[in-house]
Amino acid sequence: MMTTPLPRRLAAEAVGTAVLAAVLVGSGIQASGLSPDGGVRFLANVLASVLALAVLIALLAPVSGAHFNPLVSAADWWSRRHDPAGPSARELGLYVLAQLGGAAAGVGLANAMFERPFVQLASQQRSSGHLWLAEGVATGVLILLVLGLLRSGRGRYAPVAVAAWIGAACWGTSSGSFANPALTFGRALSDSYTGIAPGSVPGFVLAQTAGATIGLALATLLFGAPLPAAAAGRDSAQAVAAPVVT
Rank of each mutant, 00 (worst) to 15 (best):
F42I: 06
A66H: 07
N69I: 08
P202I: 11
A225P: 11
S73A: 12
F114M: 13
L133T: 10
R126P: 08
P70E: 03
G33N: 14
A237M: 14
H130L: 14
L20R: 00
H67L: 12
T194D: 13
T209P: 02
R9I: 01
A52H: 01
I214K: 02
T139E: 04
A237T: 14
G101Y: 08
I29S: 07
P7W: 07
A110K: 06
W77G: 00
L10F: 05
T194N: 15
P62I: 09
R116F: 11
G140Q: 10
V201P: 03
V55M: 13
P5S: 11
T4F: 10
L121W: 14
G148L: 11
A242Q: 05
S35R: 09
L147R: 07
V19R: 00
G108D: 02
T220C: 05
D191V: 03
T139I: 10
L60I: 07
L218W: 06
R234I: 11
S49D: 07
A134Y: 05
L94F: 03
M2S: 15
N69L: 09
E91R: 03
P228Q: 09
T4W: 09
F178T: 09
S190W: 03
V141N: 04
G195T: 10
D76Q: 08
R9D: 03
A54F: 08
T246M: 14
Q124M: 12
G136V: 06
A212S: 13
L6N: 01
A48W: 04
G148N: 08
A66V: 10
L189C: 03
L43G: 06
G233E: 11
S73F: 00
P70G: 05
H82Q: 14
L121V: 07
Q124A: 15
A85K: 08
A12P: 04
W165H: 09
P243H: 13
L145D: 03
T3E: 14
V240I: 02
A66Y: 06
N45V: 11
L34A: 15
Q238D: 15
G233H: 10
V107M: 10
L47A: 15
L206A: 15
L20P: 00
P243L: 13
Y157L: 15
A74K: 00
F223V: 12
L24P: 00
M1I: 13
S200W: 07
L47F: 15
A134D: 08
V15Y: 00
A197L: 10
S152C: 13
A239M: 13
E13Y: 04
G108T: 04
G172A: 13
S236E: 14
V63W: 09
V201Y: 07
R81T: 09
D191G: 02
R9M: 08
G140C: 11
R126M: 13
D83S: 04
A12C: 10
R8K: 15
Y157I: 09
L34Q: 14
S152Q: 15
S175M: 11
P70M: 05
S49A: 14
G140Y: 06
A14T: 06
G28K: 05
G233Q: 12
T17V: 02
G215C: 07
G16F: 00
V162A: 04
S175I: 09
Q208P: 06
L51A: 15
Q120C: 01
G224C: 12
L94W: 01
V40T: 15
G211D: 03
S236M: 10
L121P: 08
L218Q: 04
R80E: 02
L121K: 04
A158R: 02
V160T: 14
I196V: 15
P181L: 07
